[in-house]
Amino acid sequence: MRPAIQIEDLTVAYGDTPVLWDVDLEVPSGVLAAVVGPNGAGKTTLMKAILRLVEPAAGRVLVEGKPYAEQRRLVGYVPQRGSIDWDFPTTVLDVVTMGRYGELGLFRRPGRRERDLAMEALAEVGMADLADRHISRLSGGQQQRVFLARAIVQDARVYLMDEPFQGVDATTERAIVRLLRDFRRAGKTVIVVHHDLQTVEEYFDWVTLLNVRVVAAGPVQEVFDEENLRATYGGRIAFAAPGGPPGDA
């Protein structure tokens, strides 16, 4: 089976500072993959470079074996919740419907079908009763679930999610995990920028340890160990020994 994402020699620089350096990465199809690394490791940039939201200095990205530009439709993106203005005048349902815009194409307006799909997705994330609510009157977790519902209606094969677990409540965390597993069952691939090292082993099958370069990438059981974590975080890290209880430092 072709890998969901293949990245070859990817380098991104802002000015003369490299943010990602010579990144090679293969994420197999159908896995839940975490991308972890310290602040400034280039995790968000990696997402944006895959999506061509930033122009890489070098390298290429293949999605299911073909260049990203040809496969755009297969890839869904869940940006960081904090990247947008939640005071924008629109409702929950409207934001979720935006997940269909790519499929609709230019000029066509969303109709009943799009509305129904959006309502289904909202029900899946437990937000059906908030469909008509203005987005500024949502908690952080609810905002995140709106983004996830938008991703659901997009019906992509590969999802890139930027810190979906950041600052959410327990209900939302459970909803996200359930959704990730649903996606995996449906054969989708999800790549998640993740901060909480404690939950990597529980939530994900695959992990990429990133700090400008790829330190290690592979199945969680094989590469998520103390040595690689130290190499990634430079020894300034409190983490759980794999399989063991949370450690102090």
Binding site: L51, R52, L53, R72, Y77, S83, D85, F88, M98, Y101
Partner: peptide, 14 residues
Amino acid sequence: KVQTFDPGFAASIG
């Protein structure tokens, strides 16, 4: 609308 609301997402859907 979508480009004003969420430019990154708008670009990602082509």
